[in-house]
Design a binder for these strands. Structure first.
Length: 504
RNA sequence: GGCCGCGUAGUACAAUGGAUAGUAUAGAGGCCUCCGAAGCCUUUGAUUCAGGUUCGAUUCCUGACGCGGCUACCA
């Protein structure tokens, strides 16, 4: 009991181990969507959890800023953009570029309709009997995109300038979303700078006999002994593919950071890719490859299945955030909770509560489980939610503000109320949970612990008088328990990237 | 076809080789002239199916079914 006020445990001491953690890593031809939200939350929270466990964590993101996708947006922009900018249109940069990516698809359809004389009420691809990916290559607009790609690769000045300008808009747009989500990266990588990496690794693999050159000239590795297939690592024309880049980038990062662990937060669609990546590096004799961990997570789906980008609104990160903030504002006003708040304070509170609801909703689920997100029903403020925990914290703070005595630990022999005892035991579990969360790379461990703690405290609060406790000793002890509970909720939620208000 | 993941109340999430499988929400009922009712209390309701291992399986194994993903010289 005397140890309770010494329970100021926040984190384990530094363990001298370095971690490189990559997350988010969007393609710059469209805005962030709900999948990036889960990615960012997992990446951010895992980082905080590892830091609290004593790791030295460096976060990185890699932007897939080149290739045919961005060239499609550029082609559509040249065709129909009329010099539009985020400033002239009032559209957030990443959305603007995304709009042109969508427009590209529309132009493809238009051109195919014209070419094959397909009436507007018929599905073009069905009518002509070709897959979209195949048919689009017949169009003029696609030829223009392809031409842009070649010009970009040749270093054509005008093309590079446009590419830089458009990507710049995208980054500015992303930054707004990052700030809202509270994430940042220690270092940014760009595919345009790393896509030629990996050739050295290929040579090394060939020299060591781990990789082999096929008759057609492509370099491959045979992973059938490991239960996988033959995997191409370099194209027959000698250019690199995704895997080549990732091998090269991993090697470069190791030489730069000498990290003990390299964590990739990437959706489970790429389980196979990362299995191959790790195996290749291990077979090359890179001992550090053992430290590679793919933090795989399942997709977020709508009630009717996978969110498709063309379904639009519901899958967009910015729209989703705006929506929860809106709901938080309505709900808070409805409850009349903001009397005495300035406009800024009230807005800050809506943001805290709205984001708390959204972040908690996603982080409370194990990463490997898919999440069904129903925009209409999923964001709740009662029960097993972020706002419930935030409310519990605010009520504790309110209680403590009312207490005028000093907080001293008492060598008490008072018999404890059963819930009181249970609560104290829960509080001492925090380090164990923190350890487990890092061990499993699972923020849900923290999320569920904090919820259970808040729930238990609320039970205690209802069952046991605190400020009105019969004796000074009991009052003192219960305030102390309340304070430690509030602090533990606060630090736990901080690991999830969720703020807890003093009042709400 | 092959491989990987998942399958727990109407819905959304927990948990465990063991004893009454927890919680939320939705439904029913109760608690503000005592510390904040975004709260608390009571109550209804679930381990996809079939085998196997085991004294004991919701958990481990095999198969079926369902959902999702991967199976590119795309990223």
């Amino acid at each position: 009991m005397q140890d309770l006020d010494k329970n100021d445990f926040i984190a384990f001491p530094p363990n001298g181990k370095k971690v490189l953690l990559e997350y988010c890593s969007p393609n710059t031809n469209k805005p962030l969507h709900i999948g990036h939200v889960r990615n960012m939350l997992l990446g951010y929270s895992t980082t905080e959890i590892l830091k609290a466990n004593g790791y030295d964590v460096t976060t990185v993101s890699i932007y897939n800023d080149r290739g045919i996708a961005i060239c499609k947006s550029m082609a559509a922009y040249i065709e129909r953009g009329n010099g539009a900018t985020p400033e002239s249109t009032g559209i957030k940069g990443d959305h603007l570029i995304g709009d042109y990516y969508v427009l590209f698809g529309q132009i493809v359809t238009e051109q195919l309709r014209a070419k094959y004389n397909v009436p507007a009420d018929q599905d073009v691809y069905k009518t002509i009997g070709k897959e979209k990916e195949v048919a689009e290559q017949e169009t003029e607009i696609f030829a223009k995109a392809k031409d842009l790609l070649l010009k970009w690769e040749a270093g054509d000045e005008a093309t590079i300038a446009l590419w830089k300008k458009m990507n710049g808009w995208v980054y500015a747009g992303y930054q707004v979303t990052y700030d809202m989500m509270g994430v940042s990266f220690d270092k940014d990588y760009y595919e345009s700078q790393t896509y030629t990496l990996g050739k050295d690794i290929i040579d090394e693999g060939l020299a060591k006999g781990v990789f082999y050159k096929r008759p057609d000239g492509a370099v491959a590795i045979d992973l059938t002994p490991d239960g996988l297939d033959e995997k191409i690592l370099l194209r027959s024309d000698g250019t690199s593919i995704y895997m080549t880049q990732d091998l090269g980038t991993a090697d470069v990062r190791y030489n730069e950071y000498h990290m003990d662990k390299m964590i990739y937060v990437v959706a489970n669609e790429q389980d196979y890719h990362f299995k191959v990546l790790k195996l290749c590096l291990q077979k090359l004799g890179k001992s550090w490859a053992d430290g590679i961990h793919h933090l795989s997570y399942s997709l977020v789906e709508s009630p009717t299945g996978r969110f498709k980008s063309r379904e639009g609104k519901t899958a967009d990160a910015d729209d989703m955030i705006a929506e929860v903030l809106q709901i938080a504002e309505e709900k808070t006003k409805e409850l009349g909770k903001t009397s005495g708040f300035s406009a800024e304070e009230a807005n800050a509170l809506y943001k805290t509560i709205g984001l708390g609801a959204l972040k908690y909703f996603i982080l409370r689920v194990n990463p490997y489980k898919k999440i069904i997100f129903n925009p209409e029903e999923s964001i709740d403020f009662h029960g097993h939610t972020g706002p419930f925990i935030q409310y519990s914290h605010a009520r504790i703070r309110s209680l403590i503000r009312k207490y005028t005595g000093t907080l001293v630990s008492i060598d008490t022999t008072t018999t404890l109320h059963s819930t009181e005892r249970e609560l104290i035991l829960q509080l001492f579990e925090y380090p164990t949970v923190l350890l487990a969360a890092a061990d499993k790379y699972d923020p849900a461990e923290i999320a569920n612990y904090v919820y259970n703690l808040a729930k238990l405290y609320n039970k205690f609060y209802n069952e046991v008088p605190i400020l009105t406790a019969p004796t000074q000793e009991e009052k003192n002890l219960r305030i102390l328990i309340s304070k430690v509970t509030g602090d533990t909720i606060k630090k736990g939620m901080k690991l999830l990237g969720i703020e807890v208000p003093e009042k709400m």
